[in-house]
Amino acid sequence: MDTLDPKLVLDVPSDVRAIEEAVDYVLQRCSECRAQARRLRLNFRVGLTEALSNAVLYGNGEDPSKRVRVEVVIGGTAITARVMDQGEGFDPRSVPDPTTPDNLCRAGGRGLFLMRQLLDEVHYNDQGNCVTLVLRFDSGFGGAATA
């Protein structure tokens, strides 16, 4: 796996109550990317929140002895975030499309879908316990244009 030189590193407990605070903190540190306000507020926020939720809930199983590490690099053309849990990992290919008629009424399964829809790149490591998210500044998304 590539080595990040993170500008920001967070050590987050496996507690769903910690997710919002962690995401808010990262977004505050991205304030220099003001020109990307809507893509940060919507695309990056959703992506990071979903990655953290998956790590806390499913990766670490809310085990208080386990932590989630978040690394964020704010570059000139993109923001890269890496979210690592201490779980056994999973196969992201096993997650079905939540928008098909058969799955639309299911309560779960939308987190990874939203990450893939809203971010420019979503990569998992081979083990499936570390996801890297990339939001490029020069790309648009449907209605989520730069504000």
Binding site: R45, E50, S53, R106, A107, R110, F113, L114
Partner: peptide, 13 residues
């Protein structure tokens, strides 16, 4: 301000 996938899921449920 914001709804995450868990929030969407609870609405479906």
């Amino acid at each position: 301000g914001y709804i995450d996938s868990s929030g969407l899921g609870v609405l479906v449920s």
